[in-house]
Computed example of a mutant assay.
Amino acid sequence: MKKLIMQTKVLEKKSRYRIVRILVICLCLALIAGCGKTSSKKTTEEEGSDYVDVSELSRLNSDIFAWIRIPEAGIDYPVLQRGDGDDSFYQTHDYLGKEDPKGAIYIEAANLNDMCDFNEVLHGSSPSDGTMFAPLSKFLDQEFFDEHKYIYVYMKGNALIYYTFAAYLREDTRLLEQYDFSYASGCQQFLDEIYSRSMSKIVREGWENQVQPDNFIITLSTVDPSSGKQLVVVGCLVGDVAGKIDRYVDYGDPDDF
Rank of each mutant, 00 (worst) to 15 (best):
Q7M: 09
R59K: 12
N113V: 01
W207Q: 15
V233R: 06
S185T: 14
A242D: 01
V238L: 05
D250S: 11
V54E: 10
K229A: 05
Y17N: 12
E46W: 00
E47R: 15
A167F: 01
R21C: 04
K37Q: 13
L23Q: 06
G103A: 10
G85S: 07
S198Q: 08
T131D: 11
Y150Q: 02
K138W: 10
A30E: 05
E177W: 00
I107D: 10
G36C: 13
V79I: 12
I161S: 11
V79F: 02
S227Y: 03
L96T: 06
D87Y: 06
E205Q: 13
K13H: 02
D172Y: 03
I75K: 08
E208G: 09
Q178G: 05
K229D: 08
D141H: 14
F145N: 12
V52F: 14
R197F: 06
Y77T: 03
I75L: 13
D114I: 03
Y95W: 06
V233F: 09
A66C: 15
D63S: 15
E193Q: 09
S196W: 01
S62H: 08
D192P: 06
D253I: 02
V232Q: 15
I5Y: 08
Y154D: 15
E56S: 12
Y251P: 09
V249C: 15
Q212Y: 09
